[in-house]
């Protein structure tokens, strides 16, 4: 049994009487401790799948199961599954200190020892303890993304949903955040479901990747197939060819 099982998932948004089918009949399996990537252009539905798992998008068909159980968005879910969003400038409350941001999930879940946990969380993501009472505007983009990762890990979840966690960052800062994610995954045995439009980043982080286009699954590739350019579909090949690290020849 896989940890995350998504079968024939469809997500349909209705706006002004018009239906937008953002995800159409996508199925995937992610095993425990595996790292799975979703890649595609804007509008391919890749982020919508993550949002559907979190209950942030209207599921119109199919099923999502975590650990064999049908999805219920209760507190137990929050302790198992957490999400890191793309834009670290938008995902942290601008008027909350890091201390408040990081201790809020503990307060909601009635977990004690907030003081030590916050200090450890900062240390885990490589931020100095002196940052504890700072506000987001006093941090750089990379530091903010570290805070967002620390917040996601406060409840010690098994699964991290990562929505383009480095695409708003500089190349050098991206390297630091990718290294941080790799270390945390190894230390804590986390399962990653990561969305990115950058195949090189997906290849670096993920064991398998699902290529998506216009809300549908196009092709699933293992890491070896991706590195060896053994893709079957033209679309997956065009993404591979357009990938930035191919540009230098």
């Amino acid at each position: 049994m896989s940890l995350i099982e998504i079968d024939d998932l469809s997500v349909t948004f209705t706006a002004q009487g018009r239906e937008v089918r953002a995800v159409q009949g996508v199925s995937l399996r992610v095993d425990a401790r595996e790292s799975f990537g979703l890649v595609g252009e804007s509008g391919s539905g890749k982020s919508t799948i993550l949002r559907a798992i979190c209950g942030l998008a209207p599921v119109s068909g199919g099923s999502i199961r975590i650990g064999g159980e049908a999805l219920r968005h209760d507190r137990a879910f929050a302790r198992r599954v957490q999400m890191v969003f793309q834009d670290p400038y938008a995902s942290l409350h601008p008027r909350h200190t890091l201390d408040r941001t990081l201790s809020e999930p503990l307060a909601i879940h009635g977990i004690g020892g907030a003081d030590q946990r916050v200090m450890r969380a900062l240390e885990d993501v490589g931020l100095p303890s002196s940052f504890r009472f700072r506000y987001p505007h006093q941090l750089s983009g990379g530091q903010r993304q570290r805070v967002a990762i620390a917040r996601a890990l406060m409840l010690e979840p098994e699964i991290l949903l990562l929505d383009e966690p480095t695409s708003a960052l500089d190349a050098s800062v991206q390297a630091e955040v990718l290294n941080l994610l790799a270390r945390l995954r190894a230390e804590r045995g986390l399962t990653f479901l990561m969305v990115s439009h950058d195949l090189a980043v997906i290849d670096h982080v993920c064991d398998r990747v699902l290529v998506m286009q216009h809300g549908r699954a196009v092709e699933e590739l293992t890491r070896a197939e991706l590195a060896g350019a053994r893709m079957q579909t033209d679309y997956a090949r065009s993404l591979f060819e357009a990938s930035a690290d191919r540009l230098m020849g």
């Binding site: 190349a171 990718l178 270390r183 195949l199 090189a200 670096h204 590195a227 990938s243 191919r246």
Partner: peptide, 11 residues
Amino acid sequence: CLPRIGGDRGP
């Protein structure tokens, strides 16, 4: 510092 497709996935 940029990841590459088919890289060694080390830090």
